[in-house]
Computed example of a mutant assay.
Amino acid sequence: MFEEKPLSMQNRVKTLASEAQAQNQPYAWFEPLYAQANGNADQVPWAKSAAHPYLQAWLSEHPQPAAHSKALVIGCGLGNDAEALQAHGYQVTGFDVSPTAIAWCQQRFPNSAVDYQVADLFHLDPSWNQAFDLVYECRNIQALPLNLRPQVVGAIAPLVAQTGQLLVVTRIRPDEQECEGPPWPLSPLELAEFEAYGLVETDRATFVEGETVTVQQARILYQYAQG
C-alpha cells in the first residue's frame, strides 16, 4: 500500500511547500502541484487509482449508514475516497483548496452524486459546523507544518455532528521525534488535541508499511463522549 515516491517528486513537493511557507501561505502549494501535473495522476504523490485501502477496509467492516447520512471528505484530491463513501450510502461533500483538483474530480466522475466544491479548510461555510455524520480526513493534517496543528484540529473537529464520527488516516511519529516534511507525521500529543473539542478516540488500527523505508501509519476513529 505504501509506495516510496521518486526522489525527483519528493524534491518537487518540498520545493513547492518551502516556497509557500516563505510566502506565509503554507497550503498554497497544492494548486500548483495539481496544475503542474497536467492531468497525469502519477505526478500527484498521494493519488491512487482507487479509494484508500484503509478506507476500503473500514467500509467493509461497517454497515451502510442510516438514510440521508452526510459525509464530508477533507482535501478530497482526485475524488476516489469521496466516490467510495457515496457508493457506501452516504450523501457526500468533497472539497479541496485546489480548483484544479476539483475540476479533475468533475472530469473523472461526470455523473457523480458527490457535491465537489472548492473550499479552504480555514474559511469554511459556517453552516457546515456539526453538519456531518462522518468527517473523513486522510493525510491533509500531515501535509501542513507543525505550527498549524492546533488551527487544523480546530477547523476539523467542529464539522462533526454530535452523534457523528471523525475518521483520520495519517502517518504517526513518537512525541519526541523531530521530523522534516512534508509530510510531517502526527504525534500522540497532537492527535490528543481533538479531545479539547470533546472527541475521544474509540478505535485505532496501526500499520507499518514500506521496505527500504518503513512508515508508521494509523487509522483512528473519534466520536463525542456520551453522557
Results as ranks from 00 to 15, higher is better:
Phe2Leu: 05
Glu3Gln: 02
Glu4Gln: 07
Lys5Glu: 07
Lys5Asp: 04
Pro6Glu: 00
Gln10Arg: 03
Asn11Glu: 04
Arg12Glu: 06
Lys14Thr: 06
Thr15His: 03
Ser18Tyr: 00
Gln21Leu: 13
Ala22Val: 06
Gln25Ala: 12
Gln25Leu: 10
Tyr27Gly: 07
Ala28Cys: 08
Trp29Phe: 09
Phe30Gln: 05
Phe30Leu: 05
Pro32Ala: 07
Pro32Gln: 04
Pro32Met: 05
Tyr34Phe: 14
Ala35Arg: 11
Gln36Tyr: 05
Gly39Leu: 05
Asp42Gln: 13
Asp42Leu: 09
Asp42Val: 05
Val44Gln: 05
Pro45Glu: 11
Pro45Tyr: 07
Ala47Ser: 08
Ala47Pro: 04
Lys48Thr: 09
Leu55Met: 04
Leu59Asn: 05
Ser60Val: 04
Glu61His: 07
Pro63Trp: 05
Gln64Trp: 03
Pro65Gln: 06
Ala66Gly: 08
Ala67Arg: 02
Leu72Cys: 07
Gly75Met: 02
Gly77Asn: 01
Gly79His: 00
Glu83Gln: 03
Gln86Val: 00
Ala87Trp: 02
Thr93Ile: 06
Gly94Pro: 01
Val97Met: 01
Ser98Phe: 01
Pro99Asn: 00
Pro99Leu: 02
Ala103Asp: 06
Trp104Asp: 02
Cys105Asn: 05
Gln106Pro: 02
Gln107Met: 11
Gln107Ser: 11
Ser112Ile: 08
Asp115Asn: 14
Asp115Gly: 03
Gln117Ile: 06
Gln117Gly: 06
Gln117Phe: 09
Val118Lys: 12
Leu121Arg: 04
Phe122His: 13
Asp125Trp: 13
Ala131Asn: 14
Ala131Ile: 14
Phe132Val: 14
Asp133Cys: 14
Tyr136Trp: 10
Tyr136Gln: 10
Cys138Gln: 15
Cys138Asn: 15
Cys138Leu: 13
Ile141Ser: 12
Ala143Tyr: 08
Ala143Ile: 07
Ala143Arg: 06
Asn147Thr: 10
Leu148Val: 10
Pro150Trp: 08
Val152Ile: 12
Val152Ser: 08
Ala155Ile: 09
Ala157Pro: 09
Pro158Ser: 10
Pro158Lys: 12
Val160Ser: 04
Val160Glu: 02
Ala161Gly: 07
Gln162Ile: 10
Gly164Leu: 04
Gln165Met: 02
Gln165Lys: 08
Gln165Pro: 00
Leu166Tyr: 01
Arg171Asn: 10
Arg171Cys: 13
Arg173Lys: 12
Glu180Ala: 12
Glu180Trp: 09
Gly181Leu: 03
Pro182Trp: 04
Pro183Gly: 11
Trp184Asp: 01
Leu186Tyr: 01
Pro188Gly: 14
Leu191Gln: 07
Leu191Trp: 05
Ala192Ser: 15
Phe194Glu: 02
Glu195Tyr: 11
Ala196Asn: 12
Ala196Pro: 10
Gly198Thr: 11
Leu199Tyr: 05
Val200Met: 12
Val200Thr: 11
Val200Gln: 13
Glu201Phe: 11
Thr202Ala: 09
Thr202Arg: 09
Asp203Ile: 06
Asp203Cys: 07
Ala205Glu: 12
Ala205Arg: 15
Ala205Ile: 13
Val208Thr: 15
Thr212Ile: 08
Thr214Glu: 14
Gln216Pro: 11
Gln217Ala: 10
Gln217Phe: 13
Ala218Trp: 12
Arg219Ser: 13
Ile220Pro: 09
Ala225Ile: 13
Gln226Met: 15
Gly227Met: 15
